[in-house]
Amino acid sequence: MISLLTYLVDYNALCLRILEADSYVRFAGVADQLGKMVASQYRKNVQPLLTKEESELSATQSILRMGTRLTLESKLGPTVYSFALYERVKRATIPVRDPGNHCLLVSFDVVADHEEIILEKILPLLKS
């Protein structure tokens, strides 16, 4: 069932705002609770590291991993974001906390200060 909020939130606009928030953001996408990408944007002139199919698989895996974190949130508190560092890219999964249980998937250049970008630039966008 698709929530009413899905129709009220322009996830493509959100992705664009995230890309505009910091020049080290390579990609921003929003996936639903089944891992289907509902919106995504790449930074201008960036070469994607994954094919469209690989990106969809990655989104599904990220959503599944985020779902497993829910079991401990009653004791640890809500997940703010999860993070992975690869040799060629940094990636974060951020729960949107909307009725549709969407997740924001963001990738950064390796030299990015991802934590500062997430805490000071991306999370305020999600709250507004």
Rank of each mutant, 00 (worst) to 15 (best):
D32G: 00
Q33P: 02
Q33N: 14
Q33I: 06
L34V: 08
G35D: 04
G35L: 06
K36N: 13
M37H: 12
V38K: 14
Q41V: 13
Q41Y: 05
Q41T: 05
Y42D: 06
R43A: 14
K44N: 11
K44P: 05
N45F: 14
L49H: 11
L49A: 10
L49G: 07
L49K: 15
L50T: 11
T51A: 06
T51V: 07
K52F: 08
E53T: 06
E53M: 04
S55H: 10
S55Q: 14
S55V: 04
S55G: 13
S55E: 15
L57D: 14
L57K: 15
S58L: 07
S58D: 11
A59P: 02
Q61E: 09
S62Q: 09
L64Y: 14
L64R: 09
R65I: 03
R65W: 06
M66P: 00
M66I: 01
G67P: 00
R69D: 01
R69C: 00
R69E: 05
L70S: 09
L70C: 03
T71F: 08
L72D: 12
L72G: 05
L72W: 09
L72N: 12
E73Y: 05
S74A: 13
K75C: 07
K75S: 09
K75V: 07
L76S: 13
P78F: 13
P78K: 15
Y81Q: 08
S82H: 12
A84Q: 15
A84H: 15
L85I: 11
Y86L: 12
Y86A: 10
R88W: 12
V89I: 15
V89Q: 14
K90T: 09
K90A: 11
R91M: 13
A92N: 01
T93L: 11
P95F: 07
V96H: 01
R97I: 03
R97C: 07
D98T: 05
P99Q: 13
G100T: 02
N101C: 08
H102W: 07
H102G: 01
H102D: 03
C103H: 08
L104Q: 00
L104H: 04
L105S: 01
L105N: 00
V106N: 03
V106K: 00
S107W: 02
S107A: 06
F108P: 00
F108D: 00
F108H: 00
F108T: 00
V110G: 01
V110S: 06
V111Y: 10
V111I: 09
V111S: 12
A112V: 01
A112W: 04
D113S: 07
H114N: 09
H114P: 00
E116R: 15
E116A: 10
I117Y: 00
I117Q: 04
I118A: 01
L119K: 13
E120Y: 13
E120D: 12
I122R: 08
I122H: 07
P124C: 11
L125T: 14
L125I: 10
L125P: 04
